Simulated assay, not measured.
Amino acid sequence: MTEERKKFVLLGFFLVMALLLIYVTNTESSYQKEIRENPGKTICKYVARNHYAKTTNPVVKYYAAGKLYISEGYGGYDEGSIDDFYELKYSTIDPNKIEIDFSKKVKDTTLTHELDRKLQFKYWFYHEH
């Protein structure tokens, strides 16, 4: 490979990486912007952890806009405990877009019992969702 060809390949590689970085940064900020501009608030139950090669993602269940959601890919910082309840912000346009605040544990037993009841299979079998 000639020296000129190597420079061209290297320049192409850096250009692709720069475009990818801009795309990822813009996507993340638009994700958070959508939650901020169309806020919904509820609680979630931390039910499991997905372990990957270098990360661990929390699995949470929550009820928003009259529907049950299970988020297995939330990439937020995880310092929560399984079976605990936390505050969750979501986009009212797309309730799959969420932010969980693991520093805000929900201790209101009325709210936690209500969510637990909704998460039970019997509730989803007999109620429209």
Rank of each mutant, 00 (worst) to 15 (best):
K118E: 01
L19S: 03
V59G: 01
A53E: 10
I70D: 04
N26M: 12
Y63V: 03
Y46K: 09
D101F: 11
E79Q: 13
I82P: 11
S71D: 08
R5T: 13
E37K: 06
W124G: 11
H127V: 03
Y46N: 06
I35A: 07
Y123C: 01
Y74Q: 00
R36Q: 15
L15A: 15
M17R: 05
E34Q: 13
G75N: 15
H127N: 15
Y86N: 08
N50R: 05
K7H: 15
E72H: 13
Y69R: 01
T2I: 08
Y77D: 15
K61S: 09
L10E: 15
I35Q: 02
D83A: 03
I70C: 06
K6H: 11
R117Y: 13
M17D: 06
G12W: 05
H51S: 07
G73R: 04
K41G: 10
F102N: 11
K104D: 11
A64W: 05
Y46S: 08
Y77Q: 13
G73H: 08
Y62G: 07
M17E: 10
N38R: 01
P95H: 15
T42Q: 00
T27R: 06
E72G: 12
S29G: 04
T56C: 00
S103K: 11
L21Q: 02
L115A: 07
R117S: 13
P95S: 15
Y23K: 12
F121D: 13
V24W: 11
V47N: 04
N26W: 14
T27N: 08
Y31F: 14
A64D: 02
K105C: 09
F14H: 10
K67G: 02
E87H: 05
D78T: 04
N38G: 01
V47Y: 04
Q120C: 11
Y23V: 10
S91M: 09
K89A: 14
F102Q: 08
L15S: 12
P95E: 11
T42R: 01
K45V: 03
V59I: 03
A48D: 03
I93C: 11
Y123S: 02
G75Q: 14
N38K: 01
A65Y: 00
D101I: 03
V9P: 09
Y63Q: 01
D108V: 04
G40N: 00
D84L: 06
N50W: 02
L111M: 07
T25R: 14
G76I: 04
F8I: 13
F14L: 14
K33Q: 09
F121H: 05
Y90Q: 09
Y77S: 15
Y86H: 06
D108H: 06
K107D: 13
Y62H: 11
K105F: 08
R36P: 05
L115C: 08
G75E: 15
V60K: 02
C44T: 01
Y52W: 13
E72M: 15
G12I: 08
Y69Q: 01
L21I: 04
G76K: 02
Y62A: 10
K45Q: 07
G12A: 15
K67T: 03
K61E: 09
Y90L: 07
N38L: 03
I100P: 10
L11R: 15
V9H: 12
D108W: 07
G12K: 10
V106S: 08
L119A: 00
M1D: 11
K104V: 12
G40Y: 00
Y46T: 06
F85I: 05
C44Y: 00
G73N: 07
L19D: 04
N50S: 04
N50K: 06
N38D: 00
L10K: 14
F85P: 06
